[in-house]
Design a protein around this nucleic acid. Structure first.
Lengths: 223, 223
DNA sequence: GTGTTCGTCAATGCATACATTAGTCAATGC
DNA sequence: GCATTGACTAATGTATGCATTGACGAACAC
């Protein structure tokens, strides 16, 4: 949710810290003082402070008075909560999109994202697959046109990113998931509102079940 | 979403500005520079700046480089988007809550909020009614226990607050709406998951239709 | 009268200064 | 040996300083 009023350094601090958190360079639980973050980023405390405030609003860090900022871990309950919201929002959005009977041309960005998932799957490139998966979901919401929903779902994706990447590497290739995206795409192209909603909901619920059972199995209660 | 790392002045700036926006003291479109907000609040630019960053994350103001901060107006499309999200989230949460078969005791906070709505309705106190309505919805989500959902729905309520208050004063007493809350409460007490979901969705969709048609009728495209 | 250029002014973005205060640790008392 | 106290340290929260730069208006050309 890169906001408007972000000047150079403040924006840089925000994006670099966010990237470092997503990529586990700043792992969950990591805690530094403001001067430490400032030194790491090579700037003064002011832009860093502003970036940390935004990251707190994004749910990625927690500002602890007098003790700096802590990278928030994600618990199993957090993942449950996040998936519950996604399961409520995305299928509804997809159904509405389908009801507008979008042309194949309009859905081209979605098809492209889906094809990128297939390519990444064939190449066994899980990172690329995850990027394409994210893109598919984001683009679906872009096409739907509810900007608030897109922004919020994006922040949830960011929060869940680390956990998803870990489980992605722990299990079999995401063939089923890729297939489900194809079905969603085709149902969208056919304008089948009901079907899209059901497939999407089933997709989300299966993803949630699998993710949580993996995390439980490996006793990863904090990520 | 009052965050943790808020010191005295910064927190005060955040809350006062938020209140002033909700209560239309700072009307939509209002734009001031940082020094002006600072002077109004009797503090330096620093805590004001931090408050404005948080308010931007809340979707209440827009920071415009070199030109200060503008109180964001809410358009008809914004209201559509907000209600779409609420319609997806709240009924799902209510259904899950019902499926836990909560005791009447557990639902006491909800019943209390509902009774406050009735009292306010009888007293023709629309402001109190709106507060009780807000409280009902918030408490339902508190009981459900998904903190992210509660926080997000709360920020949406804040964004929509002005528009809701305006339409509330333009129409007949919200008898039907109050009645629907009673039905929701009773279905929750009966543990009727499906019914709760349906009633809640119908409640949200009716509220959305009425609100939007009022706004259109009076050509209030920006609030 | 309209459009253009230039100079002034002030708000921002960032850095820094500074008082306050929480946290730490050693010294002391028991 | 353990707990308590107190002084020191350092991070925060806020204020202020300062260079940059965009906005605005006046003067001018046409």
């Amino acid at each position: 949710m890169a906001s408007q009023g972000n000047a150079a350094l403040s924006l840089e601090a925000y994006e670099r810290l966010k990237q470092d958190i997503r990529q586990n360079i700043l792992p969950p639980g990591h805690q530094d003082t403001e001067p430490e973050y400032a030194a790491r980023l090579g700037m003064s405390r002011t832009p860093v402070r502003e970036a940390l405030i935004r990251l707190e609003a994004d749910g990625l860090v927690q500002l602890i008075p007098r003790r700096g900022a802590r990278v928030l871990p994600i618990s199993l309950d957090d993942m449950e909560d996040i998936y519950e919201i996604l399961t409520a929002l995305e299928p509804a959005a997809a159904a509405k999109l389908a009801s507008t009977r979008p042309s194949a041309e309009a859905l081209a960005p979605l098809r492209q994202a889906y094809l990128a998932m297939e390519t990444a799957l064939d190449a066994d490139d899980l990172d690329a697959w995850a990027d394409a998966d994210d893109l598919f979901h984001r683009r679906m919401l872009e096409l739907h046109g509810n900007k608030r929903m897109l922004d919020y779902v994006s922040t949830l994706f960011d929060q869940a990113h680390r956990a998803r990447m870990i489980t992605l590497h722990m299990r079999d290739k995401p063939i089923k998931s890729t297939q489900e995206h194809k079905e969603i795409l085709e149902a969208l192209e056919a304008g089948q509102s009901q079907q899209v909603e059901e497939i999407f909901r089933e997709h989300r619920e299966r993803a949630r079940r699998e993710l949580l059972s993996l995390l439980r199995k490996f006793r990863l209660s904090q990520l």
